[in-house]
Nucleic acid binder design. Structure first.
Ligand SMILES: NC(=O)c1ccc[n+]([C@@H]2O[C@H](COP(=O)([O-])OP(=O)(O)OC[C@H]3O[C@@H](n4cnc5c(N)ncnc54)[C@H](O)[C@@H]3O)[C@@H](O)[C@H]2O)c1
Ligand SMILES: NC(=O)c1ccc[n+]([C@@H]2O[C@H](COP(=O)([O-])OP(=O)(O)OC[C@H]3O[C@@H](n4cnc5c(N)ncnc54)[C@H](O)[C@@H]3O)[C@@H](O)[C@H]2O)c1
Lengths: 206, 206
DNA sequence: ATCACGCTGTGAAAATAATCACATATTATT
DNA sequence: AATAATATGTGATTATTTTCACAGCGTGAT
């Protein structure tokens, strides 16, 4: 497969989000420069990025919103339902479950896990919470590939190791520490503090 | 000022975080290859990035943890206290206040704002919540430059516009929509759904 | 005192990403 | 049917980012 730049992937995900919104609004066609404006990108870059996807628009109408959305979805392989688990139903965990639930029907948090007896065997926005000790089996039996980690910092590494052993291939980590995982596990760190620092830098320096 | 790549800024922020941790652990010196491993970077890249900061290490011991941390802090201008406000004390807002509080003493959420009478005039992890209508004045009087937006999607644009008018220069936006703001306002979108999609892409394609 | 080692700092090279520029396609209009 | 207007797709170009390679330095060993 041809290597696609990480930035391209990030932008495609944003395009897809905007296209979904446009589709819901009933818009049929869109030009590269409009999509660029909506996505914080550039017309040239939109067209370049779409080369990777392989979908062609028409010079007259631009791109079919519906077809382009579905082409990008296919390209990103997120067209079928993807099952994800979440570990740690704390403040952040609950906010994420709520959000995910509303946001993208293609991505389903299929179960959550916690260690606190008060949280286990309850449902949060339709997501059932099990004891953490059952996570391993759950991952294996349901072939779960992606996990969201929102446990306290001190627990994150243990959880990440256990999940990797069980066959998890991707982790969205909200914990500030860096996780040590096998090479074939992809980790995305989502540390809000870093985003905030970035904002502060650009406010003070640009 | 010489233009610094956005990726460099992001990495410097991570280096700083790791250095802070090392400092707390009492480590005195560190080599570029060790810092690279801790930060998910490369030794060459660490050294290249540090050229922007202007701090020099010694070939014998590497970099002084304390001095390097403080040089990066100075460079990022985040050495003095920065005051930030948060709009929308919902699930996510509360999680962030709690987190920020624990995480970085240099960055203080100085106040929060909400529209719900049940939430106003209460304290959350030491952060007092005021009525949203007082936010404008607060920003002006206290010269607040950075805001975190965690209100419902439908309210985000209104809030962003009002804050921009009042002089806000940077926004960390947790809402899925794209905000239209004046050119001199820097917006960082922190949409977890996009991070999750990215993880899913890399799990399925790499 | 000298040497060997291993790291830093940085110019140069390579790789990657973004932008430009234009040939090509499609439609509306006359 | 010809023409004008406008947007796409992509080779070429430019800019940026990363990696390489090595000179130079400081330390500890001999
Ligand atoms: N990345 C961010 O922006 C951000 C924001 C807020 C919080 N955080 C981080 O996210 C994490 C969670 O934050 P929070 O505010 O939700 O904390 P929290 O304490 O509210 O929630 C943590 C949850 O994890 C559960 N838990 C503890 N140990 C566990 C284990 N071994 N297995 C399974 N579950 C376990 C707890 O019972 C609790 O329900 C922390 O690391 C925090 O630093 C990150
Ligand atoms: N980016 C992410 O990863 C992520 C995750 C979870 C939620 N979200 C988003 O963050 C936002 C908040 O999510 P939440 O779960 O905390 O929602 P929530 O409903 O729990 O909280 C929203 C808060 O905003 C307050 N509010 C409403 N209108 C307001 C106004 N005009 N001025 C001031 N305050 C106002 C409400 O009273 C409430 O306290 C939503 O847009 C959601 O989609 C994002």
């Amino acid at each position: 497969m041809i290597k696609i730049a990480e930035n391209t992937i990030k932008r495609l995900i944003v395009y897809k989000k905007e296209l979904n919104r446009l589709k819901a609004e009933g818009k049929k066609f869109i030009y590269s420069h409009v999509l660029a404006a909506l996505s914080g990108s550039q017309p040239h870059l939109v067209r370049r990025d779409l080369m990777a996807v392989g979908y062609s628009g028409s010079p007259a109408h631009g791109y079919s919103v519906k077809e382009l959305e579905s082409s990008i979805s296919d390209f990103l392989c997120s067209s079928r339902q993807v099952k994800v688990i979440l570990i740690g139903i704390g403040n952040l965990g609950r906010a994420i479950i709520d959000y995910c639930h509303k946001q993208n029907p293609k991505i389903a948090i299929s179960s959550a896990f916690d260690i606190d007896p008060n949280k286990i065997n309850k449902e949060y926005h339709g997501v059932y919470c099990f004891h953490i000790d059952t996570a391993r089996n759950y991952v294996i039996e349901n072939e779960i590939k992606v996990a969201i980690i929102t446990v306290p910092d001190s627990e994150a590494q243990t959880i990440a190791t256990a999940l990797s052993d069980a066959g998890i291939r991707g982790i969205l980590n909200f914990t500030p520490g860096r996780l040590r995982v096998p090479e074939n596990v992809y980790v995305e760190n989502a540390d809000m503090m870093l985003y905030l620092e970035k904002v502060i830098y650009f406010v003070q320096n640009v």
